[in-house]
Design a protein around this nucleic acid. Structure first.
Lengths: 206, 206, 206, 206
DNA sequence: TATGAATGAGGTTTCATTCAT
DNA sequence: GATGAATGAAACCTCATTCAT
C-alpha cells in the first residue's frame, strides 16, 4: 500500500544510519558493519543499494552541496533590490542558509564541516556575500573603509561557528541565529558618523 | 657542532613530513609509507622514533593544543586592565592567536581544523572571550544588548575563517588580520545610538 | 498442445542460456544473474529448477559426455569388420563424432574443450582408435612401424583442432572434415614403399 | 653472497607455486592462500611482489606467450632453405616447440591449454606452418591435393595432444615426439606415385 | 642507526543461495 | 511459477607493525 517499495525504504534507512555514523565517527572510523547493524541488515544488503561505502558518503555530501549551490544561485538572482529589501533580503538569505543546514544536522556535519570539499562551498558563499556587500558599498549604504572580501569571510565564519555551537545542537533556531548574526554584522557595517557619500545618494534617487 | 644527535634530527624530519601529509590528505589517507618516503626512510625507522602512527599525529596535535591552552591561560591572567589596555589587549591577544596559528600552518590545519578535539579548544577560546566581553559590558564600554556568548562565538568564527583563507595561505599577516577582525568586531560592539551609561562615561574619562 | 509444461520450457531456456554463457565466459566468470537476465528471470526461479549453479553446468557437460561415451561404445561393438568396412567404418565413426560435437556447439565448447574431465573422454576415444589401428596393423593393412597409440593420439588431436577451427564456427561440415582427416591420416598409415607383409596380402585378397 | 636477493627468490617461489596451483586447479579454484601456504608465506608477502592474483597468472602466461611468439618469429625468418633443409628444418622447428612446451610443464598447461588466449597463439602457429606447406607444395615436394590450411591445423592438433599425453607427463622427449609427428605427417604429405610437377623442378633448379 | 622481508588483523566486496510473499 | 529482499560465507587486499640482520 505504501508508495515506496521496501527496497527504497531500506535504502533510505541505510543513508540515515550512515549519516549518523559518518557524522559522529568520520568516514574512516565508520565501518560498513556499523551502519548495517544500526539498520539491522547484513553486508550484501548494503551493496544491493550502493556500489560501495564511498558512494553512500558521496550521496549524502553531494545532496547537501547541490542544495547549497542552488540556494546560492537563487540568492544571486535575487540581487538588486530596493532599500529595505537589501538588508531584509540579506537576513532572509542567511535564514535560508541556516534552514538548510538545520534540515539534516548529521548531513550538515559531514558535508559542511568534515568534507574537504566544503571549503569550496564556503568560498562560493563568500563570493556571493562579497558581491552584495560591494553593491551596497557603492550605494553608500554601508562603510566603504572595510574590504568587502574580509567582511564576507567574517560573516561566513560567524555563520559556520554559530551553526556548530547553536544550530546543530538545537540550541537556537535559524531565525534567531540570523538575528544574532545581523545584530553583530549590521552595526559593524553601518556608515556611522560619516555623511553618506553624496554621489551615492544621487545614484540611489534615480 | 649541532646539539641534536642524528636520531633527534631524523625524528623531527619525520614529524615535519607527517605534518605535511596529514595536513593535505588527512590522517587516514596518509600512509606511513608516504611519510617515510618523503623523508627517505623505511618503515622500521619510524618505529624507532615513535611507538605508532597515531603517536606522531598526537604529538603534532598536542603540541599546538598545549601552546594554545597556554596562550588562553596567559590571556586569562591578563584580564582586568585599564580601558585602553582592554581593547588594545584584546587585539594583542588576537594577534598572539594568529601568530601561534601561523607558526606552523600544517600543524594548524591538523590540530585546529581537522582534529575533532579542536572544537574543545575553540570552546575554551570562546569562554575566555565571552568573559572579557562580559566584563566590558558590565563596565559599559560596549553594548549590553548583545549576548556575550554569541559575540564571542562570532569572533572565534571570524578568526577561524580568516585563518583558513588568509593566514595559512600566507596572504595576510597576523597583525593585519587582527586589524581586520577588530575593524568589524569593535564597531559592532560599540555603544553607539543609545545614551552611554553615565557611570561608564565617568570611568572612561579617567 | 505442447507436451512440455511451462516449467519444463523455462528449465530448458535456462540450460540454453547457461550453455551460451559458460561457453563464452567459462564457469566462474558466468554469474547466475547473467544467465537469468538472459532468460528474463530472477534468481529464485533458477533454484526452482536446479539445486545450484554447478548442477546446470553438470547437466550440460554430462549430457554430452554420456552421448559421447555411448558413441564410443557403439563404435567398439562395431569392431571387426571386413576390409572395406574397416576404413569406411572408421570414417563413418569420425563423422559420428563430428556430428555429435556439432549438435550443440556451446555445449561442445564446454564439455569437450573447457571441462577438465574432457581429457578422460579423449583418452577413451584414443583407446578405441588405438585398438582399431592395432587390429589393422595385425592384419597388415597398415604400417606396423608406427605406434598405434601415437597414431591414435594424433588422430584425436586432429579431430579436436579441426573441430575448434572449422566445425564449431560452422566453416565446414562433419562429412567434409572427416574427409580432411582421412585425407591426411589414411595416406600416413598406408603400407607404401615397403614390401607388404605376404600374409597380410593373402588376408587382403580374401 | 647469492646474486639474487631474498626478495627476488621469494618472488620466484611464489611464481612457481602459483604455476603448480593454477595448473592443477585452474585460476579460480586457486586461492591466494593455497599458493602462499605452499611457499610458507602469508598474504601480504604476495602483495609485496605482485599487485594482485591476476598479475601472477598473467606473468606466467605472458612469459610463455612471448617466448612462443619469438619462436614462431624465428622460424618464420628461417624460411626458404634448400631441399633437405626444408624437412629437416621443419622437424627442427617442431623440436623447438616441444622443447619450449617442456621447459615448464605447469606453465605450459596454463598458458597453452587453459588460457583462453592460447587459441590465438595456436592460430599463429597454424599460419606459419601453413605458409611453409604452401611453399613446399609450390615446389612440388609435397602433395598439392591437400589444403595447406587443413594440414597445418592437423599438425598443430597432433602437437597439442602429444604434448598433453606424452610430453607434459614426461613420457616422451621432445625429439622423440618430433619423430612421431613426422612419422605420421611426412608420409601423409609425400607426393607418392605421381611424378613431381616439372615446372616445380625447373623453379627449383634456378 | 637503518633495512629487507615478513606478518596479524581486519575491512570491503562479491558471490551463490534462500525466505516470505 | 515467479519475485523482492535478504543472507552466509569467503575471497582479496591493505594496512600498521615487527623481526632478524
Amino acid at each position: 500500500m505504501s508508495k515506496k517499495g521496501k527496497g527504497e525504504r531500506t535504502r533510505e534507512r541505510i543513508l540515515e544510519a550512515a549519516a549518523e555514523e559518518f557524522a559522529s565517527r568520520g568516514f574512516y572510523e565508520t565501518k560498513t558493519i556499523d551502519i548495517l547493524s544500526k539498520v539491522g541488515l547484513t553486508q550484501p544488503a548494503l551493496y544491493k543499494h550502493f556500489p560501495n561505502k564511498q558512494s553512500i558518503y558521496c550521496e549524502l555530501v553531494d545532496g547537501l552541496h547541490v542544495k547549497f549551490r542552488r540556494l546560492i544561485e537563487t540568492a544571486r538572482l535575487g540581487i538588486g533590490l530596493t532599500d529595505d529589501d537589501v538588508s531584509a533580503g540579506a537576513k532572509e538569505a542567511v535564514i535560508h542558509v541556516f534552514n538548510l543546514l538545520f534540515e539534516n544536522p548529521n548531513v550538515t556535519r559531514i558535508a559542511f564541516f568534515m568534507d574537504q570539499n566544503a571549503e569550496n562551498l564556503k568560498l562560493e558563499l563568500v563570493k556571493l556575500i562579497q558581491k552584495n556587500i560591494q553593491s551596497e558599498q557603492e550605494m553608500g549604504y554601508i562603510r566603504s573603509d572595510i574590504s568587502a572580501e574580509i567582511a564576507a569571510v567574517c560573516l561566513v565564519g560567524m555563520i559556520e561557528r554559530l551553526t556548530l555551537e547553536f544550530l546543530l545542537p538545537g540550541k537556537k533556531s535559524p531565525e534567531s541565529l540570523a538575528d544574532d548574526v545581523f545584530g553583530i554584522f549590521a552595526p559593524a557595517m553601518i556608515n556611522k558618523g560619516s555623511e553618506p557619500n553624496p554621489i551615492d545618494i544621487i545614484k540611489h534617487l534615480e
